[in-house]
Design a protein around this nucleic acid. Structure first.
Lengths: 217, 217
DNA sequence: CAAAATTGAGAACCCCATTTCCGCTCTACC
DNA sequence: GGTAGAGCGGAAATGGGGTTCTCAATTTTG
């Protein structure tokens, strides 16, 4: 009786109009939570905040928080997705500065590497803290969040393939995922650039590794 | 007066004898905790156990647990180290079955990949759960725990280098770390083999990636 | 304006790691 | 052989944090 297929269009529209206001309000509240969380993260340089802090900062209530989010993890995922979207844009922009497909790819790899590297000064614990944390608790959602960055690399690889710059067995889509994860994870466990330990992996090294492999041919 | 330099050797020995028994007892208790934890992990196929469970299983007490371990993380690290030691041995053994240096390396890469891949059937959540979890909380210790596996790959790469099979710019030690992490991390986020999703990365693919890179040369 | 839905403020609940308290037992040392 | 002390089991207590619940105030809707 109330199946969508039997709902007259006019009713749909009426309901929607009625709901729109509420929807806007809800979105505003959600945004306030997100903004508050982002501010806290920027301040503390870590994702070790409590839900209570976010609630206080956004001048709302716990009740409201759990009304809009399924839990803390959804908040984290939302922030993570935002960050990855921005990152994807940033990488795309940087890559577009190069003419040659392989140069574009190189720039993309090196930038992603620098962005994911843990740097105590730069305030971006999204990758160094969120990623591993969420990867444990919600691997599927994390993969989805990676999509925009993955898309950039897929494009870049497709371009390179079209220019016959890649080995014939390289499949752009699959290799894009391979490269992205290789770069991101290796960046995270390479000490920060100013670390004195023996392992400050460089962006060049990782690019050489991805591009040329290790064999002597 | 009680400085070590003034302690006569006979006293040192006497004390040591006296302490040895206690030490053995302590080691046995520690081992019972470790065994209990391992059993629970094997049963549940996850590392989501509580300290209380381990205590009950080992028929000891919470008090005793915190007397022997600084906290849950030490227990996890201990298990993780054990697992990585066994893994290193296993890889070394498998690799030794091959004659050619590059074949040994390939076998090592492929085996490590399979071992780190999340397989619901195989009971080894050490890599899929521990690693990310500990990497967040105790990155330094995790790196130390990786040492034995890293050593295997360093040897294999050194062999290959000696046989002039590697590109000249490849540094065995650094590249070993690069390969190990690339393999481990990519394995963890590649769906299990029987997964229907589009991304069941294969051991061959990751080997090709590491060995040959992506460029067309 | 009245009914209904949304919020706020805060207490309450739960899970779990970690600590603490109280006896008991076994070891070490005289 | 006996006694002080360390080691230990059992269980209650503490504490941090996420999540839920209660109730009254407020806003939105009709």
């Amino acid at each position: 009786m109330s199946s969508p297929s039997e709902e007259p269009a006019w009713r749909q529209r009426a309901v929607e109009r009625s709901i729109k206001a509420a929807k806007v309000r809800a979105e505003q509240r959600v945004q306030r939570f997100l903004d508050a969380a982002q501010v806290i993260i920027d301040e503390k340089g870590t994702t070790d905040f409590t839900v209570q802090e976010v609630v206080d900062r956004s001048r709302q209530s716990l009740r409201s928080f759990y009304l809009h989010f399924d839990g803390k993890h959804e908040l984290l995922l939302a922030l993570f997705e935002d960050a990855l979207n921005r990152t994807a844009d940033q990488i795309r922009a940087a890559a577009s500065g190069q003419k040659e497909p392989l140069d574009r790819l190189r720039v993309a790899v090196q930038l992603l590497f620098e962005l994911c590297r843990p740097d105590p000064d730069a305030r971006r614990p999204l990758f160094t803290d969120f990623a591993p944390q969420l990867l444990v608790s919600h691997p599927t959602e994390v993969k989805v969040a990676h999509t925009p960055v993955l898309a950039v690399f897929t494009e870049l690889l497709a371009d390179a393939e079209e220019a016959s710059l890649l080995s014939p067995e390289v499949k752009p889509r699959r290799t894009a995922a391979l490269i992205m994860q290789t770069v991101m994870f290796n960046a995270q466990s390479s000490g920060s650039p100013d670390d004195e330990t023996a392992n400050p992996l460089t962006a060049d090294e990782i690019w050489d590794f991805c591009a040329n492999g290790i064999t002597n041919h």
